[in-house]
Design a protein around this nucleic acid. Structure first.
Lengths: 220, 220
DNA sequence: CAATCATTCAATTGAAATATTGAATATACC
DNA sequence: GGTATATTCAATATTTCAATTGAATGATTG
């Protein structure tokens, strides 16, 4: 009757999920979708990859239960299937952080001083937001900012940072964030701000986790 | 200078971890190692796979930071790198449970009545253990039982269940457990016990989670 | 120091995943 | 209805992964 052990059948399904997560570009797609639903088009542009390629990755991910798709007019909008997907990506990241020397090397290699990596917790930020003694920088591109951001945050894309340094209050602490835990832009922003004498730190994780933790989101 | 974006480099590492988890046999190895360190030999026997094959999987897993190896005499003993590995496997399982219809189908198809799947929580079990009004069955093979089990548990491998039915107190509730959440043996045991009129339920998860939650372990 | 046992290595084969390209489909807009 | 746009499909070439087999290595035992 070709009935293999149910355990094997289940493990094959779990393996399908894991295998599908096992591709850098697909992880990048998850990072993007962690911020909200996006069209194939936009995702391809963000990744700098051919549309057909991205489309196929998205379909692979749909078959593995990672994302869902919905047609909206002439666009097909993809979104993460549910919160468990981000949780799984986070769990995998932790394994890599804990056990792969290579990860440590990359992180240390890119950012000279280790302490600039110590992030501000979400709790700390919501507290200090109320005091008003902190400047929050959203260093993502303007289009992503427009689709949702931390209330009160200034949108200063990395490319404009230098030009807008003068408008920042040097008396206030700065907290920068972008897409997720390893979105490089916030590291880069903090590094540059510190070089200019500002007291700057990163927010732990990024936008999707801020939302997931039940914090307010503004959009414009 | 061939210095790709650090984000890409990191994502490649994360993808390596996920990809390595993406193989049913390797997930099975993790399930086994979740119970404690094991030799290549023993693992191969448990999986019913060729030793060379298992050895290669283990080496792949070591390169991905999932397991660590240590030589003990003429054996090489592998163990999980740390708790994050089990956490990652659990997170992946959750994605599959939430979003893959196939998983639901398998679980439902194998066990006719859905309620037999409602597990006893670890907290509930530790409470009832103190009252002494519950019989705990460890349905794993004797060798795995010997390496660590819930205190007070009876070792009744599935193959011996029928023969030992008469020795079980029909007045007590029975809680069965085995290796992990989808170790089929505890489902099967509960199903058979219920057919015989016993009040039987499964323990949520299995041995590794019991240990991870800080509960006592007995060995013999 | 030879014999034995556990593990790993190396080479081969077959299977699967990926990127790429151009064509096909579906929807909206005029 | 025709055209533009967004997405998917199909076919192919390339690369990577997995299982198998037998030989090689490393450690223990007598």
């Amino acid at each position: 009757m070709s009935s293999p052990s149910p355990k094997l059948a289940l493990f094959k399904q779990f393996a399908l999920v894991a295998k599908t997560l096992g591709h850098p570009q697909r992880l990048e797609l998850i990072e993007q979708l962690g911020q909200g639903p996006r069209s194939v088009d936009l995702l391809a542009e963000k990744l700098g990859a051919p549309i057909a390629n991205v489309s196929q990755h998205l379909q692979t991910m749909r078959r593995a239960g990672l994302v869902a798709a919905e047609r909206q007019g002439k666009f097909v909008v993809y979104r993460l299937a549910d919160d468990s997907v981000l949780a799984a990506m986070k769990a995998i990241r932790r394994v890599a952080e804990n056990n792969l020397a290579e990860v440590d090397k990359i992180v240390r290699g890119y950012f000279e001083e280790r302490d600039s990596l110590e992030p501000v917790t979400r709790e700390e930020l919501s507290g200090r937001l109320r005091d008003g003694m902190v400047t929050v920088l959203d260093v993502r591109p303007a289009d992503e900012f427009a689709l949702g951001h931390v209330p009160g945050a200034l949108n200063v894309p990395l490319s404009e940072l230098d030009a807008r340094l003068a408008t920042l209050d040097p008396e206030k602490d700065i907290v920068a964030y972008c897409r997720g835990a390893y979105c490089v832009m916030s590291f880069e922003a903090v590094s540059r701000l510190r070089a200019q004498g500002f007291s700057a730190r990163r927010l732990e994780d990024g936008m999707p986790e801020w939302v997931a933790a039940g914090n307010a989101v503004a959009s414009s």
